[in-house]
Design a protein around this nucleic acid. Structure first.
Lengths: 188, 188
DNA sequence: CTCATGATGTACTGATCTGTACATGAAAGT
DNA sequence: ACTTTCATGTACAGATCAGTACATCATGAG
């Protein structure tokens, strides 16, 4: 089924925001890129903030779908799937248009905790944590919540290292750390 | 010795940039806050970019001084000092004006790798890595470079979790993970 | 006192920001 | 054919952006 006009606008905005940042991307630029008129743009989205939130929601579903599917494809057991998350990250960070985690960027530019943009970023992280916790429980971890959080900390840290320093090995080094943590958490 | 005018300007700019972001903070605002005139401001710094780089350099020395001194104060052996880094982080993230890592924010808003602001952020991370690698070697790690990188990945990830999700436990959970990695790396 | 020098403040430039008023267009109902 | 309705486009408002031209001021030298 064809994407609606609104979905098309959100998709284009998502790419531009990710590539250039939120404050640095003006509505004029988005209007120019999409070929739509400004009036129509503001018919679809009452404000820039609303457009950003819509873009983050799209990114949330895109990223989770991609990550969870790669994890399921690359790993059979829950333990393997958790480790496979880092293989998926390795595929991602070497892509030429990789620019770090969009939600970290969003939360960085909109820091007030009550800001809808920041809240949307936090929500994404919470959803990731939920999935990891379920898998950690399935894997038989002593403390699934702790293990899930630690693995996600490794994930965020590896992305930051890859983005800020351009470190290519961060994700595989994070995977090695994750393996150690998993071994430790599944032993008893 | 008294701070020079320039140092005072950099210090104030640092606080404002950290609290509100780089693009979101205009030179007009900084001029108003410091009481200086715009002409004088541009006498000290040829451009906003130059001011941001100066602020990041100050932040780099401040943060490294603080972290390394806390690590030395809280830990005796190299191993204890590496772990103590996470205790220091725990002190930091609960401060009311904690807003995440300034260098991650800077690299997020100025993504081009050849941008001086981005480069300054990368440099800070490299200096942290150097210190951690030295300590890991002193601690007798099999692969000091790997261990140092993994510990820093935990550090970045914990800061991100604390900033984006407001997660209070992230730094102590990261410390637990760090302890596991240390145990593993020092065994032979 | 006179004049040069350098720091400072005011007021501005042109560009860009988010958001809107209003004119124009096409399609649909009667 | 005439009017209503709604989507679209143009042009703009008012604020703010980074950066600068120029007037004013204090100070120090001769």
């Amino acid at each position: 089924m064809r994407p609606t006009k609104r979905e098309e606008l959100v998709g284009k905005a998502l790419r531009t925001f990710y590539a250039h940042g939120f404050h640095a991307t003006g509505m004029d630029r988005l209007v120019e890129e999409t070929g739509i008129s400004k009036t129509s743009m503001y018919k679809h989205f009452r404000s820039k903030e609303e457009l950003i939130v819509a873009a983050l929601k799209l990114r949330d579903t895109q990223f989770r779908d991609w990550l969870f599917h790669r994890m399921a494809a690359l790993g059979k057991t829950p333990r393997e799937q958790l480790l496979a998350a880092f293989d998926a990250l390795t595929e991602w960070v070497v892509e030429p248009d990789f620019r770090g985690c969009m939600f970290v960027k969003a939360a960085s530019e909109y820091q007030e905790v009550d800001n809808p943009i920041h809240a949307q970023a936090a929500r994404h992280k919470a959803l990731l944590l939920e999935h990891f916790r379920d898998l950690a429980a399935l894997a038989g971890a002593n403390d699934p919540a702790l293990l899930a959080r630690q693995l996600l900390i490794l994930k965020e840290g590896a992305i930051v290292a890859a983005q800020v320093e351009g470190c290519r090995e961060a994700t595989v080094q994070a995977k090695a750390a994750a393996a150690t943590l998993l071994d430790n958490a599944l032993a008893h």
